[in-house]
Design a protein around this nucleic acid. Structure first.
Lengths: 335, 335
DNA sequence: CTGAAAGCGCTTACAG
DNA sequence: CTGAAAGCGCTTACAG
């Protein structure tokens, strides 16, 4: 690698101290009242030598890196990919770069990622915490490392968070099913103790109760790591029994996985089975008929996460809980 | 933020120099023949104080950050999202973290991202270069910064690269169409001078010629930033004229966009129109009939990119050109 | 207006 | 076996 030019090289070339160069590079020439010829010479030398500042040295000295960490379940999942894109753009607005990691919904992975990123001195973290990550979150709090939880959160620990109104989301989906005459409504969710999932389940359950459908409450839980197998088993069972006339999926990946099973079964949607999905996906458009779904305001969630995080980094002492409103996109799949 | 504990704190607590602590932390206690009680004490102190090394300081001293940069067109595009995931996993195997950025196929954005990441002292870069990025690539070469191009490359500059056999990919798609009796085959590509795109176009053209279909060569080019509008206009034209009996899309996003138009048109696939897509996507499965497509070995491409990059970082002087073999997944959409 | 110098937290030759 | 010290490339109080 070619020898990088440093601030010292500039200083030597111009014949001044490194302090002056640093001031000029940081736009402090007015404040420090540096002679205009010197300023000009420094700028010229910077250009001529094609000087690029070493951010690592700067970071070490300043104690901040202008980098944030983003830990999601899986960057290749479109939900998180889109979130990452929004986070990237918004962070760039504030001069931050982003390092990312995928936890695969695994607390041990998440712990390693957090450690890796914290050791790299990220100024803050945006996290979608997996199950069992309470310790890690507490650790971050104890260390005073700025962070904001997104998508999920821990009910027992008050942290900054940006999440969906999960309860209302599924509650309103049930209402929509009911309004269209469906009653035997099943929910397919992830097997998880995470609040966002429990809230989606609770919203469904309460929705069923409030509509006098307590007897028809059926919640099926799929394991994250065995989504394909579990979904197939569950859907085969449900579709064969014919005891359900509507199904609600609690995430993007569950929806898609479920749709594969439904399509294979030849059950007619929405005549025999109404369906509502989560998050939105091109597949929802191509499914026959187009799928209704609960849409999250991804753009806003991503932007807001970054903004809240940067507030924290800048020293804000407030703890912020933001609950975003879902939107129910209704199309042909639910009557 | 709570005061971070440093190597000095450990040294003070144990009553030794920072040098010893550093040696022990880096597993050099044998080599440096450090007294076993001292080693034990240091380990205890590390545990007790919950010491976390400051990678920034380490990086500054060592001149490397164990971080690689990944610049793609758009991290929210599933093709790049999946690539990112593979890169992340493979990089982690080697102890590297990854910072990412999306160029939006824009050379100015790409230049900014490169500068940002290089200033942050990434040890190397994996890039999907947009049009007009020759200068940036040359800059990286001049600076001796390790990098590898992925997906695209610059024909005039010999750099490390991991790409698809683009020419053969579209060539074989044409062959497949022809074998099934289609002749008026149209290609829908991006308007781009990038080699991967030109090669896909050339593969199509040569395929047509070699099958005596020169007269039926039609290449439509869509602008990246106006994909929706352009695709609609083009497909409407093509579908109305009824002068085509097969269409090949040159990327993932083009395929999906094109499928929206095809579905809207009520043209029968594959009776009236055969279709082959690129890259693979869940939508391809749900389209009626399931879409045939040219599949890239994403997993291998991602892994190989990382491996090649790390070889470079470690000082390899070889320039590596890797061309990966596509696979044509044939289903009902092409006869 | 400008320079000499300390210091961020590490690693590593050097000396003993 | 262990310690004192230099130095990575910056920023910034301090002195003049």
């Amino acid at each position: 690698m070619a020898k990088r030019v440093s601030i010292k090289d500039i200083a030597n070339k111009v014949g001044v101290s490194t302090a002056l160069v640093s001031y000029v590079l940081n736009g402090l020439e007015k404040e420090k009242r540096i002679g205009p010829e010197v300023v000009k010479k420094i700028h010229e030398a910077v250009k001529e030598l094609n000087y690029q500042p070493n951010q690592i040295a700067r970071s070490l000295r300043k104690g901040s890196t202008s980098t944030i960490g983003l830990i999601v379940a899986d960057i290749s999942n479109p939900f998180f990919g889109q979130l990452a894109r929004v986070v990237e753009n918004e962070a760039a607005q504030f001069g931050y770069a982003v390092v990312f990691g995928s936890s695969d919904e695994n607390a041990a992975n998440s712990a390693i990622l957090i450690k890796t990123l914290v050791n790299r001195q990220v100024d803050g973290l945006i996290l979608a915490p997996p199950e069992g990550s309470a310790e890690q979150i507490k650790y971050l709090m104890n260390q005073g490392i700025p962070f904001v939880l997104v998508d999920r959160y821990l009910p027992d620990i008050s942290t900054n968070r940006v999440v969906l109104d999960n309860y209302n989301a599924t509650y309103s989906a049930v209402k929509c099913f009911v309004a269209n005459g469906y009653r035997r409504i099943t929910l397919v969710a992830y097997k998880s103790t995470l609040v966002h999932m429990r809230e989606r389940i609770r919203g469904y359950q309460e929705g069923m109760k409030d509509n006098g459908l307590s007897d028809f409450i059926v919640v099926k839980e799929v394991r994250y790591n065995q989504i394909k197998e579990d979904m197939e088993a569950i859907m085969t069972g449900l579709l064969n029994e014919r005891g359900m006339d509507a199904v609600l999926f609690a995430t993007n990946a569950l929806s898609i996985s479920g749709l594969y099973a439904i399509r294979k079964s030849e059950v007619k949607v929405p005549e025999e089975l109404a369906v509502i999905g989560f998050d939105g996906h091109e597949v929802f458009d191509f499914f026959q008929p187009p799928l209704s779904y609960i849409q999250q305001p991804l753009e806003e969630m991503g932007k807001e996460s970054v903004r809240v995080l940067i507030d924290q980094i800048r020293g804000s002492q407030k703890t912020v809980h933001i609950e975003m409103r879902h939107q129910l996109i209704t199309r042909k799949s639910c009557g």
